[in-house]
Amino acid sequence: MHQSLTQQRSSDMSLPDSMGAFNRRKRNSIYVTVTLLIVSVLILTVGLAATTRTQNVTVGGYYPGVILGFGSFLGIIGSNLVENKRQMLVASIVFISFGVIAAFCCAIVDGVFAARHIDLKPLYANRCHYVPKTSQKEAEEVNCPHLSRGFCTPRIRGNTCFCCDLYNCGK
């Protein structure tokens, strides 16, 4: 009899501890999911910016941002539900997993397409040069031949490469 009272007291003591641990885990999972949502919005923003900036290469790097964002949104909703919590969290895990896989695949595909579309003609024609690091912290002026004006002098930071073909001397 004495042993069952001791067991009952210890189980009563562990109930609030388990609720506290559950609430702590729930709060931590919501923090991680909100952070993932922020990262997915950042991926989406950078991907869309890269897509609108490139003209000859299509970029698909923003698709994983959409998938990860949807998965994290489902995770936030699922962690706050009372009913159908398990199904929502499973769907969240599935979408997040597909988003991670899509991010790796898009990074590889975008890298291959970018590497295939690099124009190497200025490099082979010796129109690209290296500016060594100087003792000055300021940018160094470099002479670039220009069709209508003869030469223009863009300011190039030290320890970098440049191609005169990439500079619009008038602007």
Rank of each mutant, 00 (worst) to 15 (best):
Met1Ala: 14
Met1Lys: 11
Met1Trp: 05
His2Pro: 00
His2Phe: 05
His2Tyr: 05
Ser4Gly: 01
Arg9Ser: 03
Ser11Pro: 00
Ser14Arg: 07
Pro16Met: 12
Ser18Cys: 01
Gly20Asp: 12
Ala21His: 04
Arg24Ile: 00
Arg25Asp: 07
Lys26Pro: 00
Arg27Gln: 06
Ile30Pro: 00
Tyr31His: 10
Val32Tyr: 07
Thr33His: 03
Thr35Pro: 00
Leu36Pro: 00
Leu36Glu: 04
Val39Tyr: 08
Leu42Val: 08
Leu44Ser: 10
Leu44Gln: 08
Gly47His: 10
Gly47Thr: 08
Leu48Asn: 15
Ala49Trp: 08
Ala49Ile: 12
Ala50Asp: 12
Thr51His: 13
Thr52Ala: 15
Thr52Asp: 10
Arg53Gln: 09
Arg53Met: 07
Gln55Ser: 09
Val57Thr: 15
Val57Gln: 06
Val57Phe: 05
Val59Phe: 09
Gly60Tyr: 07
Gly61Pro: 02
Gly61Gln: 03
Gly65Phe: 02
Ile67Trp: 01
Leu68Ser: 04
Gly69Ala: 08
Phe70Val: 14
Phe70Thr: 11
Gly71Glu: 07
Ser72Lys: 05
Ser72Gln: 05
Ser72Trp: 02
Ser72Leu: 04
Phe73Glu: 03
Gly75Leu: 05
Ile77Asn: 02
Ile77Ser: 04
Asn80Asp: 03
Val82Lys: 14
Lys85Gln: 12
Lys85Trp: 00
Arg86Pro: 00
Gln87Arg: 13
Met88His: 08
Ser92Lys: 05
Ile93Ser: 15
Val94Ser: 10
Phe95Tyr: 07
Phe95Glu: 08
Ile96Met: 15
Ile96Leu: 15
Ser97Gly: 14
Ser97Asp: 03
Val100Ile: 13
Ala107Asp: 08
Ile108Gln: 06
Val109Ala: 13
Gly111Ala: 09
Phe113Trp: 06
Ala114Asp: 04
Arg116Ser: 09
Arg116Ile: 00
His117Asp: 14
Asp119Pro: 00
Asp119Ile: 04
Leu120Val: 05
Lys121Val: 06
Pro122Gln: 14
Pro122Asp: 12
Leu123Phe: 09
Tyr124Asn: 13
Tyr124Arg: 15
Ala125Asp: 15
Val131Arg: 11
Val131Trp: 04
Thr134Lys: 13
Thr134Pro: 01
Ser135Trp: 02
Glu138Asp: 14
Glu140Thr: 11
Glu141Ile: 02
Glu141Val: 02
Cys144Arg: 09
Pro145Ala: 15
Pro145Asn: 15
Leu147Glu: 15
Arg149Ser: 15
Cys152Val: 08
Thr153Leu: 13
Pro154Gly: 11
Arg157Met: 12
Gly158Tyr: 09
Gly158Phe: 10
Thr160Met: 09
Thr160Ala: 11
Thr160Arg: 14
Thr160Val: 06
Cys161Asp: 12
Cys161Met: 10
Cys161Trp: 12
Phe162Gln: 12
Cys163Phe: 05
Cys163Ala: 08
Cys164Arg: 08
Leu166Pro: 00
Leu166Thr: 09
Tyr167Asp: 13
Gly170Phe: 01
